[in-house]
Design a protein around this nucleic acid. Structure first.
Length: 629
RNA sequence: GGGCGUGUGGCGCAACUUGGAUAGCGCAUCGGCUUGCGGAGCCGGAGGUUGCGGGUUCGAAUCCCGUCACGCCCGCCA
């Protein structure tokens, strides 16, 4: 169903277009031009406005004031849009208060939790990949940002009609794993507590040992054995990785982060996807094997070939991209290329899957493995990768490889969402150096949730609205998640964030708890008004204050969702939430709902609609509504 | 050397892709609101030459050119 704002804009557009054609028959203007020029101005100006007269003024060498005035006189009102006026050269119009309110409220009532959804994706399949944490450490606060962005973007795309597959990439073959394996085999402390935490701490110890050259060479020899997939070393590492992943999953679930499948890097090699990918590349003649020089004995793609497709790649100091090292081991680039060929349906699935664990959302989490069942995953039209901005160069190279291999159309479907680094007091969070270990509390996802929940508990416990003290814990949990999720998602993805406990523990101002609180207040008013399901959607008594402003904001929700989806920016949703929560609060203060006399029904209906939309927007961010807090 | 990103009141950010009317929001600060539906709230004040310089335009935080500062990337690591 079309968004109310969209319908109103369409009526405004055709009214203006008709008036322009009548007044200025020579004007070269199309509906599209007008549509693009429409804005929702400050309410003193009107409800809709267009700056089209400025454009016409240039074309016709006339004064924009006169043009707008002429249009305003000639434009015929529609059911929703009328009262055309000119101000400062702009053409403004008013929405019909009753008709538009009924359209908006009626849409919300009939569409409920689908209000604001769209079909622009039309069932096209998109794979969202996140967060790709190495399986030898706990998630830290930086990974939380990645995971929450991935979840939110998945939700938003799904709401826009895409069929979304949530994939996680588990790198169980790299150097980090070899280092952890060395620790596993050589350090004496035994696992205790949560496995990912223990392994991560051990990894920090391993890195201190790595200063010794004999340790370094031992690790290197382990690394080469990892690539031999039936070696004892490789088996142990896989077990270690799976055990760590299961622990990381507990963290993911506590944040409400879910996936469809986990793809283990070793299975990309084992399932021959890597061989197939290299074979494709070989056949297309893009690979080279230098006999001498810097890249002697390795398999490479020369950078200048790639740079033809991504000009950013030119001019750097890297001459070639190595796919297979001279010792025969494939690089990350090769495996990522193979993974993406699978994602985009170039090479078909040779993966087998088994269930790893049942997720709290009711869906099983599958992982690739050696001896499971074949399933239909991959083969998507679009791949959205939630990957650190620092890997931009690598992602561009991978995309360029697609183009170089002749898959230019598919390359367009591979989208890197480069998110900014999360730091602590200007320092990078390094798993290696252990900067994620703090004083008293660590910068891990687990500690973050625990700390924020503790702070929330204190506040919730004091709430007079919570008479049943046994639910304090679960409400505090919801409040904490609302706070954390909102906080990570409200920044533009590309911006760098400096994490601080101060900010994390704030529940006032532009925060998730503020939005949740607004939702809870709306819920309570409806309860008190004995309001279950709206019957009629008559808005005779709607006014022209905060109430209609709220109507206008609700009417444009789908436009916000569309922007969030097309630009991969969940912060468009947080912005919207702050606006609607703030506006609802103003409305709530200024206009008595239950004591509104004859306006009561309309205001209850409006409250119902506002609450529904706040709930829908929160759901896109993965924040569950809180009825009482 | 090449490239990417960032720069907006004291602090943290939004708006930049698609130029539009008086640059929004939060924190902090100053003042007010509770015998009213939930004060995690609401109202008001003070605080800005959008890093700097040029250009395009009726109109620039937004586009173009230059410049400065900070961060990041350019590996047979992932």
């Amino acid at each position: 169903m079309a968004s109310p704002l969209f319908i109103a804009k369409a009526q405004f557009t055709s009214a203006v277009l008709e008036a322009i054609k009548a007044a200025f028959p020579d004007a070269k203007i199309e509906a599209q031009d007008i549509e693009k020029s429409i804005a929702v101005p400050k309410s003193e100006m009107g409800d809709l406005s267009t700056s089209i007269s400025f454009r016409l003024a240039k074309e016709m060498k006339k004064n924009p004031h006169e043009i707008a005035l002429k249009i305003s006189q000639g434009a015929r009102g529609t059911k929703l849009v009328s009262n055309f006026t000119e101000l400062n050269g702009y053409l403004n119009a008013a929405l019909d208060t009753k008709a538009y309110s009924e359209l908006v409220v009626g849409s919300v009532v009939s569409e409920k939790n689908r209000y604001g959804s769209m079909d622009i994706g039309k069932g096209g399949k998109v794979i969202v990949e996140f967060p790709g944490v190495n399986p030898n450490k706990p998630w830290h606060v930086g990974h939380v940002r990645n995971a929450l962005l991935g979840s939110a973007i998945s939700n938003i795309l799904e709401f826009c009609g895409y069929s979304v597959e949530r994939d996680d990439y588990i790198d169980d073959l790299g150097l980090q794993m070899a280092e952890s394996l060395w620790g596993w085999l050589n350090l004496t402390d035994k696992p205790s507590g949560k496995f990912d935490q223990w392994l991560g701490e051990q990894y920090v110890s391993v890195n201190k040992e790595l200063e010794k050259s004999e340790v370094k060479s031992a690790v290197n020899s382990l690394l080469s054995k990892l690539e031999v997939l039936d070696s004892k070393e490789s088996q142990i590492t896989r077990q270690m990785a799976e055990r760590c992943v299961l622990a990381q999953n507990e963290t993911a679930f506590s944040y409400g982060v879910y996936h469809d499948i986990m793809v283990f890097e070793s299975d990309i090699v084992r399932g021959k996807l890597l061989d197939k990918a290299l074979e494709v590349a070989r056949r297309k003649g893009v690979l080279e094997k230098p006999e001498e020089g810097k890249y002697r004995g390795s398999t490479i793609v020369s950078m200048h070939k790639l740079a033809k497709y991504e000009k950013e790649l030119s001019g750097g100091s890297e001459e070639s991209k190595v796919l297979v090292r001279s010792n025969g081991a494939a690089t990350y680039m090769a495996k990522d290329l193979a993974f993406h060929m699978w994602k985009m349906g170039i090479t078909k699935s040779d993966f087998r899957y088994k269930k790893f664990v049942d997720q709290p959302n009711g869906k099983p989490l599958l992982g690739t493995c050696e001896d499971g069942d074949f399933k239909e995953f991959g083969n998507a039209k679009m791949a959205v990768n939630i990957i650190d901005a620092r890997q931009r160069h690598e992602q561009l190279s991978m995309r360029a490889m697609f183009s170089l291999l002749g898959y230019e159309d598919l390359a367009k479907g591979i989208i890197h969402l480069p998110y900014g680094t999360v730091r602590i007091k200007g320092v990078d969070l390094s798993t290696r150096k252990g900067t994620w270990l703090g004083e008293g509390k660590n910068y891990t996802a687990d500690d973050l949730l625990r700390e924020v929940m503790d702070a929330a508990k204190k506040i919730v416990a004091e709430s007079e609205k919570i008479t049943d003290k046994s639910i304090v814990g679960s409400i505090a949990n919801s409040v904490a998640l609302a706070a954390i999720k909102f906080d990570f998602l409200k920044y533009a993805p590309e911006s760098e964030i400096t994490f601080s406990w101060d900010k994390a523990l704030t529940f006032e101002g532009d925060t998730g708890p503020y939005c949740a609180y607004t939702y809870a207040r709306a819920t309570r008013v409806l309860e008190r008004g004995g309001y279950k399901q709206p019957q009629a959607t008559s808005m005779d008594q709607i006014g022209r204050g905060e109430d209609f402003e709220l109507i206008k904001l609700i009417g444009g929700f789908a436009e916000t969702v569309e922007r969030a989806a097309s630009e991969y920016r969940p912060n468009a949703i947080t912005d919207y939430l702050l606006n609607i929560a703030s506006l609802f609060s103003k409305f709530y203060e200024a206009m008595p709902i239950l004591k509104g006399g004859e306006t009561k029904e309309a205001r209850l209906l409006l409250t119902f609609a506002a609450r529904q939309v706040i709930g829908n927007a929160l759901a896109l961010l993965g924040i569950s509504p809180i009825e009482r807090m």
